[in-house]
Amino acid sequence: MSVVEWTRHRLFGATEDPVSLRGAFRTIGVTSLVSVILVTTLFPLYWTVNTSFKPAPETQTFPPTFVPETFTVSPYVDILTGAGSSVLVNSVIVSVGATAIAMLIGVPAGYAYARNPGKVGGKHLAFWILSLRMFPPIAPILPLFFMFRQVGMIDTYPTMMLLYLTFNVPLVVWLMRSFFQDIPQAVEEAAIMDGYSRLEAFFKVSLPLVSPGIVTTTLLVWIFSWNEFQFALVFTRNAAQTYPVIIPSLVGGHATLWNQVAALSVLAMIPIIVISLLMQKRLVRGLTLGAVKG
C-alpha cells in the first residue's frame, strides 16, 4: 500500500462519497486546530522541563538544544539546597492556610446567600463581596501595606493568609452560592421532617451533596493562592517568602540561572498537576441527579 493510498484509506475509508469526504475534511480541520492549540500551550511546558535538566552553559547555546545534550539534575539539587526548599515550604503553608480560612468563611456565607436571597446583610452585601474581586489587586496594596506595617505584620504567614482572603472569599461565596442553589430546599426540609435540626440537615444532607462543588472550589482557590505573586512580592521579605517571588530574583544582571528557574517552576507545577489528576473524577458535578423528580 503506497503512502497516498494509505492516507486516502485513513481519511476517506472504503468509499469516496461526498458525505464521508466532508466528514474527512472536518476531521482534518478539527485535528489541525487542536494540534495548534496543544503545541502552543504545551511547548512552554516542554521547554521548561527541557531546560530544567540542562547544565547552565547549555541554556545559552544557539541554536538551542531540544533535548539536553548533557542530562543533569544539578539544577534541582542547587535550587533545593539554596532558597528553593524554604520558599516551597512557605508556599505550602500560606496557600493551604489561606485556602482553609477562605473555605471556612465562604462556604457558610454561600449557603446563607443561597437560602435567604436578599436577606443576608441587606440587598447589597452580596454584590459588595463580589465587587472586591473587580478592582485590580495592585490598587489596595499600598494602603494595606501601611496598615500591616503599623501593626508589625509584614512578612508573616498570617498576613499572607489574610491578604489572600480579599480575592478568595468572593470567589468561594459566589461559587458555593450557586452550588447550594442547585440543591432543592425540599431535600433539607425532608431531613428536618425526618427529625433533624436545621444544622444537622445542613451537615448530613446539603454538605455531602455539594462536596463536588467544594472540591472544585478548594482546588481553584488553592491554585490562586499557590501562584499569587503581587501581594507576596510586596508583603514578604524572607520569613514568609513564597516561591513565585524567588523566581525573578534568579534573573540576575550578569547571568540568569535559567535552568534553576525552570527547575523551581517544574517543582511548583507538580502538586497542581498531581492534585488536579487525582481530583478529576470528583470534579464532575451531577451528584444531585435524582434528588428531585421533574
Binding site: P184, A186, E189, A190, A191, Y196, S197, A291, V292, K293
Partner: peptide, 20 residues
Amino acid sequence: VQPQNRDIAMVFQSFALYPH
C-alpha cells in the same frame, strides 16, 4: 415546636430523596 420535634412525617411533591 420545631418541625423535627412534632413527630409528623411529610411526603413532598418532588419526593426529596437523599441522592447520596
